[in-house]
């Protein structure tokens, strides 16, 4: 059996960097757990297991507590995410313009479920609840950049452009 592709995407954790985030930026304070996790995810695009184990030790928290928090909040990912992160808004204004259908079509085209990463590690498809730009529905956020009115054809264009850039 060949090894799962995501293993190859697993990040090497830089403990100095973790120290910096935990101690310097967030004062080693348990109360800042969520923001520390966000900062780590920002670095690695997901939450590497090694980083969580280290974090548990540093904050003297049981690892189960950290997993509880990570799995409770929708924005955390325990799996490496793709090179391009495509977030499609499924808030009410966007839903009414048919964003669920765009998600479905895109996922079936890329052969993933929402929240998953394509086999080549290029795209992660995520849904988000309203990004506050409802006037431009349906909105998607591609690698942090907002795209207004991303209907089916727009989305196809975005995917094609990003694929060609590779």
């Amino acid at each position: 059996m060949s090894e799962c592709k995501c293993k190859q995407l697993e990040a090497q954790v830089d403990y100095n960097l973790l120290d910096k985030i935990i101690d310097e930026e967030y004062g080693g304070d348990k109360e800042n757990l969520i923001m520390i996790l966000q900062a780590i995810q920002k670095e690695y695009n997901y939450l590497p297991k090694d980083a969580l184990v280290y974090l548990a030790e540093k904050l003297s928290l049981p690892i189960s507590h950290i997993y509880e928090v990570v799995t409770f909040y929708a924005s955390f990912s325990l799996k490496p995410r793709g090179k391009h992160i495509i977030q499609i808004c499924t808030g009410t204004a966007c839903h009414l313009k048919g964003s669920d259908k765009v998600v479905k079509e895109l996922c079936s085209r890329l052969k993933v479920e929402p929240g998953e990463t394509t086999e080549d590690g290029l795209f992660t498809i995520e849904t988000v609840n309203c990004v506050g730009a409802c006037a431009l529905a349906m909105v998607s956020v591609v690698d942090g950049k907002y795209h207004p009115s991303t209907n089916q054809s727009e989305m196809n264009k975005i995917i094609e452009e990003l694929s060609q850039g590779e």
Binding site: T90, G91, T92, A93, H95, N129, C130, G132, A133, C134
Partner: peptide, 11 residues
């Protein structure tokens, strides 16, 4: 937190 989808007053 403005979690209500379709609302952006607070933003």
């Amino acid at each position: 937190d403005e979690g209500d989808p379709g609302a952006f007053m607070d933003r």
